[in-house]
Nucleic acid binder design. Sequence first.
RNA 1: GGCCCCGUGGUGUAGCGGUCUAACAUGCCUCCCUGUCACGGAGGAGAUCGGCGGUUCGAAUCCGCUCGGGGUCGCCA
Length: 590
Amino acid sequence: MSLTRRTPCGTVRTEQVGSDVDLYGWVHRRRDLGGLIFIDLRDRSGIVQVKFDPVHAQAHAAGGGLRSESVIHVRGPVRVRPPGTENKELSTGAVEVEAHAVDLLNRAQPPPFAVNEDGAVDEQLRLRYRYLDLRRSRMARNLQLRHRMTKAIRDFLDDQGFVEIETPVLIRSTPEGARDYLVPSRLKPGHVYALAQSPQLYKQLLMVAGMDRYFQIVRCYRDEDQRADRQPEFTQLDLEMSFVGEDDVLDVIERCFAHIWKQVLNVDVPTPIRRITHAEALRRYGVDKPDLRYGLEIEELSAIFATTEFKIFRQALDSGGVVRGIRIPRNVGGKEIEALTEVARAEGAKGLAFWHREPNGWRSPITKFFSDGELTGLAQATGAQPDDVVVAVADRAEVAAAALGSVRKAAAGPLGLIKDGNFEFVWVTEFPLFERSKETGEVTAAHHPFTSPRPEDLPLLDSEPLRVRARAYDLVLNGTELGSGSIRIHDPEMQQRVFNGLGISREDAERKFGFLLNAFRYGAPPHGGFAYGLDRVVMLAAGEETIREVIAFPKNQQAEEVMTDAPAPADPKQLRELGLQLMPRPPQAR
RNA sequence: GGCCCCGUGGUGUAGCGGUCUAACAUGCCUCCCUGUCACGGAGGAGAUCGGCGGUUCGAAUCCGCUCGGGGUCGCCA
């Protein structure tokens, strides 16, 4: 069996007609006509039809016994298919291979689910037999798409003068950020490494080291609960540049996306990608990662109802709140309104006001509470046409934004406003530097503690830190946050001021980040960068709903890898070596 | 931890108080078939309906608990 003579299944063409080929692959499907037998033979390159004619008795006999997913070797000449029997669905459809010799290399049991079709199969089962699942066209296509994407990224960044440099995975744990995966040290008992959540600090130090333009396609680890777009280990495209401002970073990133979208999907991404400030995103779309594939913009209606006597609006406005609404360009029924009301309530709104626009006025249970002027204003502000519906929330600005942001998202699908293959990129800029933690009430870094404040907001740093805006930006695609970046602090005194704002004392900062502050005292260039989730990018490019569909061996919601059954119970011998002892489990746990 | 959805032959679904001795498609097994390509035809095997408990004369179907999976909120500097 000489693999050098192998012809990939999907590459057989009319040029090879008459010459013998050696095919190696999996039996995709068998069609036994009694005399003639046809087999679709599959490998990564595609599918080719193999013909078993009774004239070649030995091969024909072997062909009759072949089962789906068995691995075989076939030798024989390429033939032109008889006129009228070509298959336009296959790249190899003009020809077929006439089997003269067949080797059964591995006989397959019937697989637990159909490998030769892409129908729905329980995900747990797919993951347990992932090696079979990866044979199916959907996953094979996704993994190859992912490869082409990482290659396009490397090609582009190399061309732009970036150097790919690996950084440590076993690093010092820092308290900020997500929960760390810890790795105990054998050589230093009682000490632990953390698996890197990102190469953030190392890449900044590479800038201090004069590497100028760095990137890395890098695995990152975060021990948090799973989501459709979150895995405990995921891959980032991480990059950092010296002597740059926001526009330089955004420019490289958007040209990078334009390049890979063109290379991989043959889709043009218009550049520059539009920008919207964080504050404007919240006002117009209710979220900091707006989906711009559809309109349904949130309208500010507070002025129209400034003197309203409608009690619910009155109370909201009097206590400093707002009235905002969305025009829904269709007559949605009571059931749909009810569903949207539930969506709004889930975000803390007390309810959802709604009016049906009619040729001469409005129809709604609450119309009677409003003056003609208010209703005219409503029509003008929303541009509502007859048969449209306007929904509104009166509440604190944050609640109204969140509620209408959710309503907007929930309404778009049923209204048929989301078209397949539509990619709407948008930069969200001017993020706040700090935010207040919902549960502890402490001030934390909105992005990370190394993000530079905007110079014009520096006077607010000590007095009103929550109003300080950062030189930070997110890239959003179709309502999914792809990644974020910022211009970093490169001055030790500024870094210390921001640490102060975060309640990190000088001693704390020296202990945890002394190496960084130290480095900044030896000639640190101004620098900034970006990182995005490669899995999410591939997911969106592949039209998938979860990143598990673009990861070869993902983990489930319990962070288990069900094929190998990881994690597994700790071996006492390993624990002894590490100087570790397990605590007894609390009785209520499992 | 909260909320929501889903567990029925190998796979995917239907059935949602009695007619279920559980249906359909596909896969599997046997036989027929020389131009199929989701080949076709005939026949066959295969599920006590995730588990436990309850309601009921009667439960796949209703209720409770539980196990497993997924989505989401919290969390993700």
